[in-house]
Each structure stands twice: as structure tokens, then as C-alpha cells.
Amino acid sequence: MAAASIGLVFTLALLYLSQITSLSAGDYEVQRLQAERDELRRQNALLEVQLARLDSPARIETLATRLGLVRVASVPLLFPAPLQAKK
């Protein structure tokens, strides 16, 4: 009876330790994943900034000028009224 009790207590203690160890390992994994998530978010934010830089109209205009492109002098306009008259 005494031996069985000691065995039970020992088993319960082992189970408890195992749970605690598993919990700790899980929490460290959560921390690692959270850090990874934060880093990915940071990288994403940096990419968004880079995208905004590349999309900047001022930058595109500067590049176009460097390539020898010029602003269109006049834009030909088509008015809807004559087109409708042809139908």
C-alpha cells in the first residue's frame, strides 16, 4: 500500500514536471514565433515604403526626364456629341 502510494506520488510529480516543461517549451516557441511575426511585419512595412517610393510621381517624372521623355504639349480631345450623331 505504501509502495503504491509512493509510486502514485512519484508518477504525479513526473506528470506535473512534464506538463511544466512542455508549457515552458511551448511558451518559448510562442515568443520565437511572435518575434518572427514582428520581424515579418517590419519587413512588410519596409516593403510598403519601398513601394511608395517607387510609385512616387516625382520619382517617375525624374526618371522619365532622364530618359529623354518630354511632357505632351497638347492632348487631343474627342467630344462625345459628334460620335453620338454618327450613330
Binding site: 517590419r42 512595412a45 510598403e48 515604403v49
Partner: peptide, 9 residues
Amino acid sequence: GAILATTVG
């Protein structure tokens, strides 16, 4: 929706 100012680490 174009980003004009943002904070990045």
C-alpha cells in the same frame, strides 16, 4: 491611399 508618412522600425 498613397503613403505620405509612416513609421518603421
